[in-house]
Design a protein around this nucleic acid. Structure first.
Ligand SMILES: [Mn+2]
Ligand SMILES: [Mn+2]
Ligand SMILES: [Zn+2]
Ligand SMILES: [Zn+2]
Lengths: 152, 152
DNA sequence: TCGGGAGTTGCAAACGATTGGCAGTAGAAT
DNA sequence: ATTCTACTGCCAATCGTTTGCAACTCCCGA
């Protein structure tokens, strides 16, 4: 089995991201640029509130973060994650391949381990053949107790 | 690869379920029995509202459904699913093994295909070794376009 | 069979995340 | 600079879920 741990590479350049906006007939605004910067600098699933908090003081409204995140997702720039606590989180996608990936989250302290490789392509093909469903996608998240939290 | 489709067996008997309640120092009440009946008769992920609607008219309160579902989950009798639409769903666990399973849901009509086997035990072992995390669990759901919806 | 007490329930208010309306603001093309 | 719209801030509205509390009921022991 391949190494499951993820070696996070550098984020794709900001210019490439704004280019995606223009291609989508969307405007490159202050709030959107700032949100992209935050996502580029913090490469882990962030809630919209967290994104807002990481923005310059009072820089934009929470509703704008929500709307921007919807847009970025429609454009395929971010991936959405649901841990099951009723709060959506987003993370910038890597360049190249479709960039989707998965996580291992500690159930006590929420520490996150990123998982680089996805082992479900073959499963998806088989599942598609059996079920007749097409254009399969999946969401997969692991939880566990991290080494630190085990010592208590 | 094993057959991914799930052959749903009969539900575990009601007596076995109420026994679990008693073992957990909990009382076997009218609402809890009725909710268990609904879960036994509809073996697919149900939202709390759906469960309430399937109950005899005005039988119990939505808050009671929520509280009961929490309890059933703590006792390990039901499994919770999050499709990503902000609504939690629950399904009765099978007897025997830990009973967890996964689904393939159509993104257009929400038709559900149950997936019997879980192929992630080996992955979890490997992931635990690499990361040091313990007591791993996972949530995995597939989506796609079902055969019916493809013809449009 | 008959209390009594802890566990449960119904009802409504509270909550937190997310969305929608709307009038004013600001990209960007001309 | 002008103009056309997309976009934003502000705030109310939604929606799923949780919680406080008084009334009720399951269950055990007398
Ligand atoms: Mn990640
Ligand atoms: Mn199922
Ligand atoms: Zn994957
Ligand atoms: Zn599994």
């Amino acid at each position: 089995m391949a190494d499951l741990r993820r070696k996070t590479g550098p984020s794709r350049p900001l210019g490439e991201l704004t280019e995606a906006l223009r291609r989508g007939e969307r405007r490159v605004t202050g709030p959107r640029l700032a949100i992209l910067q935050v996502l580029r600098e913090h490469r882990r699933p962030l809630s919209n509130k967290e994104v807002l908090a990481l923005l310059p003081q009072g820089y934009c409204d929470l509703a704008t973060v929500y709307r921007s995140m919807h847009l970025l997702r429609r454009l395929g720039l971010v991936q959405r994650f649901d841990v099951g606590d009723g709060v959506a989180r987003h993370e910038l996608r890597d360049a190249g391949h479709d960039g989707h990936h998965h996580h291992l989250v500690c159930r006590r302290c929420a520490q996150v381990v990123a998982i680089d490789c996805c082992l479900l392509e073959e499963v998806e093909r088989e599942l598609s053949r059996h079920s007749g469903y097409q254009a399969l996608q999946h969401r997969l998240e692991f939880t566990g107790i991290c080494p630190d939290c085990q010592q208590r």
